[in-house]
Design a protein around this nucleic acid. Structure first.
Lengths: 199, 199
DNA sequence: CCTACCGATCGGTAGG
DNA sequence: CCTACCGATCGGTAGG
């Protein structure tokens, strides 16, 4: 009974993710969305309760993906540098595998109602905390430089993995793993050569 | 004669930058904007030709600031690592000093008409090229590691300086220069300590 | 800069 | 899932 409506709902969410990411939430009308699915505007409401439900669900699915990717890594026993590399792999993979909903997630969450908004803010904080704790442990282990500021370091890592939503193109020459390894190599080892440092 | 209308236009642009960055372009109505300035909706059209003119001007001002900050650095004679640090200083300063219009710039440019859209795309490409050339020169100078991919390196630097629009808070404990130095230190020198490298 | 208004479009609903 | 419709609001204009 719910098995026939579920795929239709999934189709609606896919279309909504794409249109919201391309045009923005407010610039996408319910008639745009219905047209993309070959139906009339009013027909959507047989499957969903309203426009905001779509935004909430897209954002929730995206944040759940980040959650699952990173928090299963929390208690894994690995040196901090390897763990950071693995976290970046997973983080970029979520972005790359969900370009549309990730874009919606990063751009449209401020249009959520207060409760849903607070949930997203909480998620963001917990991701920040995950990276800060990883850095802090790496410093006390001696893997990372002792003079790092965990907060700034976490911002730098998050910049790299999150900003990928603006430029990464799935199906292009780079896999998400290529990107993660390249960024991790540069972040861990630094850009400067051994010989030529001047500052 | 134009001297009395110019400040009013500037006020409208400031309000529009703030409202567009907080609520988004399409979610901000002209009546919201007028109300923020203590006037009626229709009165705005004595000063501007339409809503999109505001978006175009905000985005143009922002991109001009990035242009001026970076392209005056192009022909400065400096080792690549110092030049990269200086570019990051300037780039982050533009973001930090224009949080509202930078946010509009990053989020709302896709709502521009085709011509204005193409201009922004062109600007983005030229900023990318600026950083890629800087990296390439640094590699051939011997300042940067020979195994760097200039394209990926430029993406990493741009991630760091652009993503600041999401978390930086002017008036907080960190100056734009603090952020730039912290990021530049980490990027140039790497996160790993000398002793504890495992990978 | 205001009042009053325009046509268009919005999200959503009723009834089938 | 469609047709037909609702009140509300949109960007913008006319005339003053």
């Amino acid at each position: 009974m719910t098995e026939t409506t579920k795929p239709r709902r999934a189709q609606i969410l896919d279309s909504a993710s794409r249109l919201f990411s391309e045009r923005g939430y407010h610039a996408t009308s319910m008639r745009d969305l219905a047209g993309d699915l070959g139906m009339q505007g009013g027909s959507l409401y047989a499957h969903i309760s309203g426009k905001e439900e779509l935004l909430i669900e897209i954002v929730n699915v995206a944040s759940r993906q980040f959650d699952e990717a990173l928090f299963t890594l929390r208690d894994v026993q690995l040196p901090a540098d390897e763990k950071l590399r693995e976290a970046m792999h997973r983080h970029i993979r979520v972005v790359a595998d969900n370009m549309d909903s990730a874009t919606v997630f990063f751009h449209e969450w401020k249009h959520l109602s207060p409760e849903a908004y607070a949930r997203v803010t909480g998620w963001r904080d917990s991701i920040d905390a995950f990276y800060r704790e990883l850095i802090t442990r790496g410093i006390s282990e001696g893997t990372f430089r002792a003079d790092l500021d965990p907060r700034m370091t976490a911002y730098l890592v998050l910049s790299a993995v999150n900003w990928a939503y603006t430029w990464y193109r799935p199906g292009g020459p780079l896999t998400p793993g290529d990107v993660a390894d390249s960024f991790a190599d540069m972040l861990l080892g630094g850009l400067r050569s051994e010989i030529g440092s001047t500052a």
